[in-house]
Design a protein around this nucleic acid. Sequence first.
DNA 1: TACATACAC
DNA 2: CATGGTGTATGTA
Length: 890
Amino acid sequence: MEASSMADDGPIAEAQVMPPEPWRPAAELPASMVSGGSSSSTSTGRGTGVAKHIGSKSLPAASTWVGAANPQHNISGNSDTGHSSVNHTASENAHDAAPGTSAAHSTAHLYVFTAEKGGMAGCDKELQQQVIYELSQGSKHLQHAQKQDAKLDQRIQQMLTTVQNATEAQRITLNRQGDAMAEAAETRRDWSRWCCVVDMDMFFAAVEIRDQPCLAELPVAVGGMGMISTANYVARRYGVRSAMPGFIAQELCRRQGVELKFVRPDYRKYQSEAQVIREVIGSFGPYESHTSDEARVDITDRVRDRAAKRLNDDSSSEEAIREAEIEAAASLVAEMRAQIKEKTRGLTASAGIAPNFTLAKMAADENKPDGQMLVPRTREALLEWLGKKSLRKLGGVGKVTERMLQSLGVETFSDVWRRRADVILAFTQLRSEWLIERSLGVAPNNLDLHEDDEGVVRRKSISNERTFRDQGDTEALFQILKELSKELSDDMAKESLAGKTVTVKLKRNTFEVVTRAQSTKRWISSPEDIYEVAKEILAKECPCTLRLLGVRVSAFKNAIDATGSAALDAKQPKLAKFFEVQKGQEEGEKANASMTTTRSTTGTSRSSSPPGMPTPMVDCDVDVDEACDGKKHGGDQGCDVSDLGLREGSGIAGSGDRPGSGEPDAAEEGQAAEDARRMAIAAKVSPLSSFFKNAQQPPPPPAPQSGTNTSTSAEHQAQDHWTIPCFVIEEDDGEEALPAQSTNEVQQGVAVSSAATGSSGTSTPTPALGRHSVASQLMLAATSTKQQRPRSSTAGVDASLRGQTASLASSSAAKAASPRRRSRSPRRKPTGGKPRDIAEFWRGATGMGSTARTSSSSSTSTSSTSASAALEGGDRRTLAWYEPVVVDLC
DNA sequence: TACATACAC
DNA sequence: CATGGTGTATGTA
């Protein structure tokens, strides 16, 4: 293209200079950088100096909206009212161009690879952008990227309008809301754990280089012309990044006089390497690893042990203990990394140590490669460290969020609280709460450990997709779809999966992506079944020219729900059905229920003002209630998770449910005579009693599931009776009772943490509350799929309920103790039935399943238990199942 | 439930 | 030679 003038491939050294200029005035920026509108990432100073050439070329000169990122945001002069400096309008933003292709001036896509999540500073970003720009010219991909970019710009404009339109009074209220969120976050702050994230350095490349040492000094990329999955540090110096197309990386290197060496990935090798690494990690504590190059470990036990030994004295000061623990943690992790290096014959890992995994992850990036970092263990020092950091380093904040935040002038962690009113205005409630909490360094510190549950499906979907050369021939597309279906089915078979929803994904040759889903009545697993549905979906989109097709199956049989509760439906179709009815009623109630507030009553009133941040405003003399009603951000208040479990009559967290008050009041449950039998037993079951109460009305006759039963599907059959599950919570005499205070904390934890949630990024999924109340989660736990068994199995089902017991304490202990694959499992597995299911079921009922981090801060936590064990450390109750009551339906 | 987005690795 | 694949969560209708 117009490459001629840019062929002056400067040596790296030349353009390397990139002085940090966070607040460089917009006027000084190259016009091209501004053209992305509000969203250009210029204000970070990261993109400084980018695209001089580009700008002088075909890109439009643009306005100076980036000025939004001027210093006044950080000066906080107006932070009391939270009055946003966004008020100088964005109107002159670069949307002079007509909508359509030529609106696609945005260059923001160029900055994708400069985002430094863990990237290297000091390479030639200018050249990098240059090459990307040139090689992308005229490509469909570029056009699509620009279109997407324009959409984002528009969205940001809209957001800014909302922000600007907020009145002063609303801002005051919003600030208070933000304060409440911060306070709630503080409630959840927990220093008790030692969380470690281990991250292998340039993992794939490191493996390849180890096995082929001659590569060491060369720029190496693992991947192909299409896409690079990782590059060594030599290559990174030339601007090569993971997720960068190979041909661009190659050109990038050529322009700098070197040849990029490509290595084909060998995933099997990486997998076996990962196993070695996991073994090392597993010897330091319970861990979780979803990808081959990263793991999260809870090293609390080892840290305490080692610290205690070193102190060797019971009466050390708290300060001394903390010092010793820091020492212990750092040395342990150093040893872990050394062992990894040794066992892998030279692969290096970086690690972060922190009170939670989010911080640990950031810390792991801090001293990469081959380094580690321990996050400060006092609030003040922590916030000092955290406050200056770019929010982009926070897992869960990607390109889009970063740009939205930037357009608000929110760049760093400390900006979030400072500008909380705008943040709340700009994002949904969940997201705001999440951001504020994370910005204070508060995050989950528990692992999602689980035993190998037989027959329970944890994953939510499985898919298979492939990119190919543009294909417009319908027959050919169907052929691809068929193959994909077959492969998918094979993958499903490996895990004995069957699902009800098939989703087809297609990417047009324009890069536009659409997904189309269809649910079926029957369980789907065979290639034919999958293809059948997929074909139908695709047919509706034909004719079309595609570059990608994908098939996904979800809504699995025997699925597990968000709380981690086991799916009972597989084993207890009738139980499931029973709860399903309850669920309907529950949700009906919910609609009428008044909202409760997020505020925790516990508030161990710490100061909630971070250093450098003004004290949360409490002394405003504007009537809150009045100011409050006006503003709805996103209008999504309706499903505020904060009303979780607090509603009266939900049977979830009422006073009678308190663990330890094992004597429910039978009288209060007395109801209709025909239910006497049921209620007599139900009355003993305090936490769930209201469910039974709700069950007073005989369930509506189940609509005869006139399923179009095929040979592969389970029989759908009308039931003529109901089986009501019966169980009783019993104190286990062997153990001491739960201290009242802990009990209290746990209870409050339920309420408090309900507002938290919002797990971050997802590759390491943390249990999130999602959109259901605890009550509905309980219901979902029991009903998440609606499988019904053939009548003939009824007897077996009933029998399986009979007399099952499980010790909650022991099952949860076992659960917590065993790493992913138990190599060491000191605690015995509880005997009898499927205790885990029941324990989880109970946890779902109490809402405790989603409050691990809060509860683990309770005083019941001891050094000998890990996170999840601490959660239920005091819970010594036993859940005993009794013979179910069978109610005949006429 | 269906679909689009955002995000991570 | 020409911009990936798998999975989860959230928002919204």
